[in-house]
């Protein structure tokens, strides 16, 4: 896939996630739009995973800690052929496996997440197991910035550095907002880079909507030998839809028919410009 095809895919994934949120009348719109570029890069450039052989023990692991942004994950998995995209017609319906958080009933999903602060500790366990077994696969997680105050994350930060887990990559979707307001207002987590470095992690900051920067940060081995890697992806909540960008209510807002049309028009324009 060429770089511009990858860029077009980001637009397509945005269209798809909006389509299914609109249809289900539910979903975490803003945070899905902020992390979908990361997912695109992970699944199309970074992760060694095979939809036809997902359980292969040597696969790279991706565990989405910010599980509420499942719509971005589902459309990316569908696009990679983990399941037919039409399955998503049943999103959030009675007896569907496609619910509002990742579940292992869906091919391609590693763990059942949704309560924040769970992804990283599980990844630490996966990464330790890989080391114990002498395996070379890597382990990735995606965290929300509002999720950072969960104590379990900081417990796992210590463990990861203690065990020198340079096969572990945590990506922070740093969109600066959560439900009640900005991270600044709700619970200040400033100087994250310094905090993480003090905890023994190697840190890199990237533009989380720049596919090339994301790929370079995630696909060239650990940021520093012998240390876990922390990639701060600076993002915009609601990225790509003008009226959603950094507007709080789109955390789990669902577009009206007119808003949906407008969003699709904006994405058509974005696609034409690539």
């Amino acid at each position: 896939m060429t770089d511009s095809e990858l860029k077009i895919k980001s637009v397509l994934l945005r269209k798809n996630l909006l389509k299914y949120i609109y249809k289900a009348k539910a979903g975490h719109t803003g945070g899905s739009l902020s992390c979908v570029d990361t997912l695109n890069v992970l699944y199309n450039r970074v992760l060694n995973v095979d939809p036809a052989d997902f359980k292969n023990p040597n696969r790279d692991r991706y565990i989405q800690s910010k599980g509420h942004c499942v719509e971005a994950l589902f459309v990316t998995l569908a696009d990679r052929g983990f399941f037919p995209e039409s399955d998503l017609e049943t999103l959030c319906q009675y007896q569907s496996h496609y619910i509002g958080h990742p579940t292992k009933k869906v091919n391609g999903v590693e763990q059942n997440t949704g309560a924040l602060g769970h992804g990283l500790p599980i990844c630490v366990g996966e990464a330790i197991a890989a080391k114990l077994d002498g395996k070379s696969h890597r382990v990735f997680t995606l965290l929300g910035d509002g999720e950072m105050p969960e104590g379990s994350n900081w417990e796992a930060f210590l463990s990861a550095a203690h065990y020198k887990l340079d096969n572990l990559y945590a990506i922070l979707d740093n969109n600066k907002q959560q439900i009640t307001g900005s991270n600044q207002e709700v619970m200040n987590t400033d100087s994250l880079r310094e905090k993480l470095e003090a905890f023994g992690w190697a840190v890199r900051e990237v533009d989380g909507h720049d596919l090339d920067q994301l790929e370079k940060a995630l696909n060239q081995g650990p940021l520093e030998a012998g240390k876990p890697s922390f990639v701060i992806a600076h993002t915009i909540k609601g990225k790509g839809i003008s009226y959603m960008e950094s507007v709080l209510k789109w955390h789990h807002g669902v577009p009206s028919p007119e808003q949906y049309e407008l969003a699709m028009t904006e994405l058509d324009t974005a696609e034409a410009q690539i």
């Binding site: 958080h101 059942n112 949704g114």
Partner: peptide, 8 residues
């Protein structure tokens, strides 16, 4: 929380 599932 219905369709948000068991975590919720």
């Amino acid at each position: 929380y219905g369709a948000l599932g068991t975590t919720h």
